[in-house]
Write a protein that binds this DNA or RNA. Sequence first.
DNA 1: ACCTGAACACCGTTCAAGT
DNA 2: ACCTGAACACCGTTCAAGT
Lengths: 181, 181
Amino acid sequence: MSRRDEVLLAALDLLDEVGLEDLTTRRLAERLGVQPSAMYRHFASKQALLDAMVEHLATVADGPVPDGDWSEQLRRIAEESRNGMLRVRDGARLIATHRTPGPAAIAAFDQLTAMMHATGLPEPIARSAVDTVICYVNGFTIEEQSRRPAAPTRTRADKNADFRAGLELIITGIRCSLPAG
Amino acid sequence: MSRRDEVLLAALDLLDEVGLEDLTTRRLAERLGVQPSAMYRHFASKQALLDAMVEHLATVADGPVPDGDWSEQLRRIAEESRNGMLRVRDGARLIATHRTPGPAAIAAFDQLTAMMHATGLPEPIARSAVDTVICYVNGFTIEEQSRRPAAPTRTRADKNADFRAGLELIITGIRCSLPAG
DNA sequence: ACCTGAACACCGTTCAAGT
DNA sequence: ACCTGAACACCGTTCAAGT
């Protein structure tokens, strides 16, 4: 493993512990037992480091499109995407704020839209369907992670159920927009 | 208008010009022709200022529930909420990140869920329906505002159409979950 | 290849003091 | 009531220099 990757993993660890506001190049240096300026050997800027972190989290999520009919694929994409974001504290905000989609994500998106189209949806509607699911996942997960843990009245299992309920609502909407329901 | 409100409006103006990352208490002071420490007469901290800004933007969005059947109400809530966020640069991120829902928002949410329930949806589904729309609106608007303006291939009108298409998809999903079609 | 040391222009915030 | 002046502990970043 390259030194660059060690720095990257340390940054992800630090993020998970202190959150996005307190993720600081100086704190990161301290954790690595090194001077603040040492980071710049490996990343051109803090922004470049954040981009690499996003890339790392998204790689988990933007894998190949799985088997199954379109609704099953949509479910898995949504679930994987949320799980990727939940891997670290403030993961959703990090991705939503800093992501420039990246080739793998775009490919997955296009593949998915094409498949929805093959199912019988007019192409613009297929595009809109995939887009809607993505926006929902992002909105849900950002909100989920930025709740101040004052009164955790809902458990993680509750949250999973809430997430799936909304997802099924959207999938039902797509199904009812299909030509031969 | 109180001095506090003048500071608040200046902060919103500044946000709109420079964006969330460059919204700085010192820049704000400079714009007001005042020392950085002067702000603390009016707001306990930068966080308190941000909260007040969120309050200001959300007040526009969380008005009374309008007339019409449930789908029309859902449309207006969604549209108003997005418009409130679009009023300033990074408005969606500001609200999603710093919002502690606030009594007006909670009241609007409960009122809306109750109405959906009256329409015939079981209560947990009504709750989920409103939640889903809100997550979608937030996800859509955050993404919309954080696109780097590199290649603005889609116009504002396109974006409005995209937004409505996704919204209709969700509304269709709710309608198809209704007991008596 | 990787890191140090010292510097620079910036942050948010506090607090005594002025008018 | 509102603001100044000076300070404090922090930021991200650069750059010459060390090993």
